[in-house]
């Protein structure tokens, strides 16, 4: 009996390794806060990686489609129930994740006899001004990190994700147009899927642009836009590349 806790720890460690392995090769997702709204971007097969959750909330992610779907549905259920029983203004990303999605993901991850969720997610909440935009990175084990404004990356492996995040923080400084930002995110997407370095040896901008154009040729660039100011309460709009100026 004394060895049981060690078996559990080992099982959880194995589980983490298993999930990371399953997610390897997953197509990264991005969210960037701009003066006019929040841009979410991923490359998938159309309505497969970027989704509207509620009036001011959206989700982007990578992983197994069935698992993304389960979490998306849980978030939509919770948001609409909260909106109906209280008010749409009471639906907040912080509460949705802190008290809803994160505990459920953690519980599921630590129940070693059930299948883990194979997901890495980004969630976004548009605020009245860019400084109040909330970006949230949610991991398969329920761990999460908030950030006000800026840009956020979700990739399948932690190290490339951190490198891409650091590079984008600098590369997007001063860039406010949706077209420019979408272009930079797609360049980053190509570097991540092609395992290009973000430090020394980073391909030139023209190579990166050519790379993402070729890399997305037979796939769908999924773009979601949360507008800061809109006539309707639902701020989300799915965009085409042409609408983003690309």
């Amino acid at each position: 009996m004394t060895e049981e806790p060690y078996r559990w720890l080992e099982a959880v460690a194995n589980r983490r390794e298993y999930v990371r392995e399953q997610l390897r090769g997953g197509s990264p997702a991005f969210a960037a806060s701009l003066p006019d709204g929040i841009l979410l971007l991923a490359v998938g097969s159309g309505q497969s990686k970027v989704f509207e959750l509620f009036d001011r909330h959206a989700l982007a992610g990578l992983g197994h489609p069935a698992d993304i779907e389960k979490i998306r549905q849980a978030a939509i259920d919770a948001a609409h129930t909260e909106s109906f029983t209280r008010a749409p203004e009471d639906v907040s990303l912080r509460r949705l994740v802190s008290f809803g999605l994160s505990p459920q993901l953690k519980t599921n991850f630590e129940q070693i006899f059930t299948a883990p969720f194979l997901v890495e997610l980004l969630l976004a909440e548009i605020g009245p001004e860019p400084e109040k935009d909330l970006l949230l990175r949610l991991h398969f084990d329920g761990g999460f990190r908030f950030q006000m404004g800026g840009v956020m990356v979700a990739a399948s492996q932690p190290e490339p994700e951190a490198a891409a995040q650091a590079w984008l923080n600098g590369a997007l400084a001063g860039k406010n147009s949706r077209r420019e930002v979408a272009d930079m995110l797609l360049q980053t997407w190509w570097c991540l899927v092609e395992n290009k370095p973000f430090g020394e040896g980073l391909p030139s901008e023209s190579d990166r642009q050519e790379g993402w154009r070729k890399g997305t040729h037979d796939r769908t660039v999924e773009l979601g836009w949360l507008a800061r100011h809109a006539p309707r309460t639902a701020r989300y709009e799915a965009l085409s590349l042409a609408q983003a100026g690309l």
Partner: peptide, 23 residues
């Protein structure tokens, strides 16, 4: 993870599952 709704996408079913039926 989800509350089971008898009819997919039916919000009234979701409310009923939470015992929050309107009207």
């Amino acid at each position: 993870m989800n509350v089971e709704t008898p009819i997919a996408g039916d919000f009234l079913s979701l409310l009923a599952a939470h015992k929050l039926a309107p009207l």
